[in-house]
Nucleic acid binder design. Structure first.
Lengths: 228, 228
DNA sequence: AATACTTAGTGTGTTTTCCACACTAAGCAA
DNA sequence: TTGCTTAGTGTGGAAAACACACTAAGTATT
């Protein structure tokens, strides 16, 4: 079976930049490509868009097929369409970025791809296609977004300590933050609710918090602007 | 001649939301469609992407063909790909938004389209396709962007008064701004250079300013963050 | 049992920024 | 000359941002 059109059409794909946070630094999920082109090298999970599926549906489908991830935060990033970005011919890719919590992190690769794994964003292997550029754009977007939208919580466990939250912001923004000022600021947010649970390590137990999305949305509707 | 592929491919288009500012309110440039579908109704300028052209090149080409506009600020907005957004079949559209100065405003329609014209954003006619949604996203982006990036100057003449600048911000953000606070803030930006020229109306002459992009870029590199 | 270690958690004074607010200046028109 | 219109300016009070150092409460080690 074949498909014929009066005019040439680019192929259309989706790609997902999946960010994770392990307490230390920011990470991305890469697939080792099984097929040509770029067989054996690392790339973001992605694939061709089906004819009857919406773009974000395609992105979620490919993400699940190649990494097993589902029900994650996913948002369109940018569309890359340089004529020579894929050696197979004209392929336009709608890139998405996803944020996943540590407890959702997949252990190993899914079905389509031979191998999937986390890599620290600041020491990545060479990437296939124009994926280095895609990553650059995704990082820029994440850094811009995290300051003005409460997306950081998508990278932390449902219940987290203020230390973890601060560590996340420091890792993404790439600079230290004063602990007292940081805590004062977040304490003023009443969508950040303190729980009666604590985590114990070899130190004083730390209180757990959770992000209350409903409270946040209510505030947002009243004109509240998140900023951290 | 025809083109045949092993798998079905969506058609790919670009659309441009062109913003202008006339001193009163924000406006967008619409084309009255000559052809089906939606012949006779209003839409954003746009068209099919050629096989060998980059996406932003396609956007600029269509913009010039349909409105005569060239050398304008243009940035990718979002890609719309709902399966049923075009009655002709699966058409994915990469939307761009453009900002044009009043002195660049085209007088009338170009070649492709029967008619082009400016419309106030808050009293638009019904739009073809999903263009109402596209506009919503574009407005949201513009409102978000103008506060943190110096894009407003792309909507004003090269030389402008502080009154015009304030009027622009008030129009886009939809609220009044205190004149003295506004002027104090912009006076602190040294990439906003006062000229020795004044415009005269039936009132005290107003000093003209210009935006010095080089100075701005230099500051930006040193970590300066624009905010207004 | 005592000590050392680690991270959690808290308060204050200073500096900076934000904001509300009202009048004079300069030209044009009648 | 008067009136109209928009341009342009300064100050004091409130709020937010910031720099900064110690105590708290557990665990691990001896």
């Amino acid at each position: 079976m074949a498909f014929t059109y009066d005019y040439a059409r680019p192929a259309l794909t989706v790609d997902c930049v999946v960010f994770g946070f392990d307490g230390g630094g920011l990470q991305v999920l890469l697939i080792r490509r099984a097929l040509e082109p770029f067989a054996g090298s690392w790339a973001f999970p992605g694939g061709f868009v089906e004819m009857d599926e919406d773009l974000d549906v395609a992105a979620r489908r490919e993400l699940e097929e190649e990494t097993g991830l589902r029900d994650v935060f996913l948002e369109q990033l940018y569309t890359f369409g340089a004529p020579a970005r894929d050696p197979r011919g004209r392929v336009v890719s709608v890139a998405y970025y996803a944020l996943v919590r540590p407890d959702q992190h997949p252990a190993a690769g899914g079905s389509d791809a031979s191998e999937a794994g986390w890599h620290a964003v600041d020491e990545l292997p060479g990437l296939a296609f124009d994926h280095a550029e895609v990553l650059r754009v995704a990082l820029e977007r994440l850094r811009g977004k995290i300051r003005y939208q409460p997306v950081g919580f998508e990278l932390l466990p449902k219940r987290f300590t203020l230390g973890q939250l601060q560590g996340l912001y420091e890792a993404i923004l790439g600079r230290g933050i004063d602990k007292r000022n940081f805590r004062r600021k977040v304490a003023a947010f009443d969508f950040l609710v303190p729980l009666e649970e604590f985590v114990r390590g070899r130190h004083r137990p730390a209180r757990l918090y959770r992000f209350d999305r409903r409270k946040y949305r209510a505030l947002e509707k009243r004109g509240f602007l998140f900023e951290l």
